[in-house]
Nucleic acid binder design. Structure first.
Lengths: 113, 113
DNA sequence: CTAAGACTTGAACAATTGTTGAAGTCAAGC
DNA sequence: GCTTGACTTCAACAATTGTTCAAGTCTTAG
């Protein structure tokens, strides 16, 4: 069982971020008799996935939904599904950026100047 | 002199967003005797630029800095500078997304699974 | 067992980007 | 000049994604 700090170090996040992710349901924790969180061995992995998903542009709510379909010990198909969803979202986001670039290039129509 | 609503319609933004952009210094306004805002003819254009810049991923603070260098009646070189900066930022963002995609593909190292 | 230092907790705060709503202003018609 | 309906104002609120800090917990050495 890992503490907040251990998960934070393993995942490359801050302790407060780990607590935030738990409140938001990205990871789950049991509690000690003194009310401290203890995480399973999958926690750091889930946080790493969450951070990549954030870089792609997903909100924590969307990431919660993504991770809801990921069991504690994911099978290959689980990883594949996750992978496909993240890739699709990244592709969408890249397309949107290219579209914005197009709108910039056609700037005369933005401002009739 | 344009009202908030007129600028909003011209720029495709909400009235509250226009007021927010004024507070943040993206656009400037004079006031009527009754304290209502009145905008110059360049306001809608600046807001359109701001919205594109937001799609690229710039914050309102960054956009303020961008627009600070844009005179009320921009010359070609002003547009070019703006264009170049936005394009560079979009390219950076696209590169970051590709990097994130790379990290997803090498997922085994994310989670040693 | 107890003291000490490291770690954790939850509430309060912060930045960002707006929206909402009660009260005030404007323009047009009578 | 007054009414009326559309528009505007500003403060308060909201969602998102965390950080900060005083107070409490854990572990290790003595």
């Amino acid at each position: 069982m890992l503490t907040v700090g251990e998960v934070a170090r393993e995942a490359g996040a801050s302790g407060s971020a780990i607590r935030f992710y738990e409140r938001q349901g990205l990871i789950t924790a049991s509690r000690t008799s003194g009310n401290q969180r203890r995480f399973g061995p999958d926690a750091a992995c889930r946080v790493r996935v969450a951070r990549v998903a954030q870089r792609i542009g997903l909100s924590v709510g969307e990431i919660r939904d993504l991770l809801a379909d990921l069991p504690p010990e994911p099978a290959l198909t689980d990883w594949q599904r996750l992978h496909d969803r993240l890739t699709a979202e990244a592709d969408r986001r890249i397309a949107e950026l290219h579209a914005a670039l197009g709108d910039i290039r056609s700037g005369r129509r933005l401002c009739d100047l």
